[in-house]
Design a protein around this nucleic acid. Structure first.
Length: 400
DNA sequence: AAAAT
């Protein structure tokens, strides 16, 4: 669980060397470039601590859940990032996420603008926010966002299951101020109504003990159907988070035929036992002829069988969100890797595979992008890291 | 449009 120092051999690899040149760093910062006043200041000599791997690929360095440094700076930048997301400014939010990820992995408190600007992912705009932070101990824009009624309202509405930023904005424009008012909206979808009704329960975070209780139940019930099932908790719980809003579980079985029908079997059983109160999302995907997997049309969510459930926790009677994901045995390790996250870690892994290794990584498998595309069979997370030439990162260090 | 990482 300790943050493994990246190995010497890896640091000397050419892909890392090229990224860390100051010429290269220019290409990866803010999407909105605005080089004006600070063109000179950013070129001040400043050598970053060599323990910090300065790269645009977050998956190459360990990122702890609770950074030792730059905590309040990160919190403020996260406010801006979230506000960008709520405004549908996905690309801009991504810029903030890159900078935040770097700061979480950075082994010092940032002490100067010049220092900040040496970090790949910190461009002029975020650099200036950091400059503000260094002199005022806050970021004015973040303070404004936190104080704005619009942000506060959108933030709450978007936490409702079944509500994204577009619906949140729609409700805000209708003048709704509370969850209760939203419940009277005449155009609610079935899922949104459910999301609103479950809002209070779903807001309650689960301790690791709560999750262990759920895992115990799932283990017993699933193995009572097929004793050879493999059950792996993933998501934030696997990354070591103390409190989680949901529980994600990847389930598989060595026999293909059994794994094929596993979702239906498990969901039926959980309905019978009374644990499963609502199916929030259910997707059984037609069985692939494996040519489907090789096709490159990109999908938003993966094609693994899955059911997002409202699951009653016996000891508290609180409804918990439990996401069940079924993986064919041959896709088990990529599914576990993909569902462990963080979102940013996965994004960088996939980018790295594509750009640096000419490979495609998805939760369905690892592929070599030659013509024709060829699947590289893998049986463990470690094997995937090895093939990609990435030093192993513990799940607890994937919190970028 | 939303569902997850």
């Amino acid at each position: 669980m300790k943050p493994e120092p990246l190995s010497e051999t890896f640091v000397q690899e050419e892909s890392y060397q090229t990224e860390s040149t100051s010429k290269d760093r220019r290409t990866s910062s803010d999407s909105e470039h605005n080089f004006t006043d600070d063109e000179q200041t950013s070129d001040i000599e400043f050598d970053l601590d060599p323990r910090f791997l300065n790269t645009k690929y977050e998956c190459l360095r360990p990122t702890p859940l609770k950074p030792k440094y730059n905590q309040s700076l990160v919190e403020l930048l996260e406010v801006i990032e979230h506000s960008r997301e709520l405004n549908g400014e996905e690309r801009n939010a991504l810029s903030y996420r890159h900078a935040i990820a770097a700061l979480k992995a950075y082994p010092h408190n940032i002490k100067s603008y010049a220092e900040a600007r040496k970090i790949i992912g910190v461009g002029p705009k975020i650099g200036n926010h950091i400059k503000e932070f260094l002199t005022t101990d806050t970021i004015p824009e973040a303070e404004e966002i936190l104080a704005s009624e619009k942000y506060q309202t959108l933030d709450i509405f978007s936490r409702v299951y079944g509500v994204g930023y577009k619906t949140a904005l729609k409700w805000y424009r209708k003048g709704y101020k509370s969850i209760r008012e939203c419940m009277r909206d005449p155009y609610l979808t079935h899922i949104q109504r459910l999301g609103l009704e479950l809002f209070n329960d779903f807001q309650k975070k689960m301790s690791r003990q709560d999750i262990q209780e759920l895992l115990g139940i799932l283990d017993t019930i699933i193995k009572s159907i097929y004793s050879d099932c493999i059950i792996t908790p993933v998501g934030g719980y696997r990354r070591g988070k103390e409190f989680n809003g949901d529980l994600d579980v990847v389930v598989s079985h060595p026999q293909e035929e059994i794994a094929n029908n596993l979702l239906k079997d498990i969901v039926e059983k959980l309905m019978d036992t009374g644990h499963l109160k609502h199916k929030l999302f259910y997707a059984r995907n037609k069985k692939d002829t494996s040519s489907e997997l090789l096709s490159s049309h990109r999908n938003v969510m993966d094609k693994l069988d899955k059911c997002f459930c409202a699951f009653i926790q016996p000891s508290t009677q609180i409804c918990r969100q439990v996401d069940l994901i079924i993986a064919p045995y041959s896709q088990y390790s990529t599914a576990v890797l993909g569902w462990t996250g963080s979102k940013q870690f996965e994004r960088s892994l996939r980018n790295y595979a594509k750009k640096e290794r000419n490979m495609t990584l998805t939760s369905h498998g690892l592929f070599l992008n030659v013509i024709p595309k060829r699947q590289v069979h893998v049986t463990s997370e470690r094997e995937i890291f090895n093939i990609l030439g990435i030093p192993w990162v513990e799940p607890e260090m994937r919190n970028c």
